[in-house]
């Protein structure tokens, strides 16, 4: 087992999830199977491979890679908030409302 019961509980706590005993057992097993699967990658020899986190388009010859696209600093008003508020679990327009939260 890669994932212990404690690991699963810690992840649930970080996501503010209350899990039942059955769920703890189920998620531990599922997370474990995902990690075991991904671990297969460790079998590949990556000695000379640069770590890569994002798939960037390759640089054209003689040029630097393009990097992340940039947007001009022009306001584009987007009148969605009333729709989003209407779809929120709880709203008190113009505000979103949530059960009282104080940062932990």
């Amino acid at each position: 087992m890669k994932i212990t019961r404690e690991d699963a509980l810690r992840v649930a706590e970080l996501a503010h999830l209350d899990l039942t005993e059955a769920e703890i057992e189920m998620f531990s097993r599922q997370l474990d199977s995902i990690l075991t699967y991904v671990e297969k990658l460790n079998e590949v020899d990556t000695t000379n491979v640069e770590p890569m986190a994002q798939v960037a388009p390759p640089a054209a010859s003689g040029q630097a890679a393009a990097g992340t696209p940039l947007r001009q600093d022009k306001p584009t008003p987007c009148d969605v908030v009333s729709d989003v508020l209407a779809g929120a679990p709880d709203a008190s327009p113009p505000y979103f409302r949530v059960p009282r939260v104080i940062e932990r």
Binding site: S92, R100, V101
Partner: peptide, 13 residues
């Protein structure tokens, strides 16, 4: 967290 009638129960965002 303050200034609303139900601030004892709810937070506004």
């Amino acid at each position: 967290h303050e200034g609303f009638l139900d601030s004892d129960r709810n937070s506004y965002i």
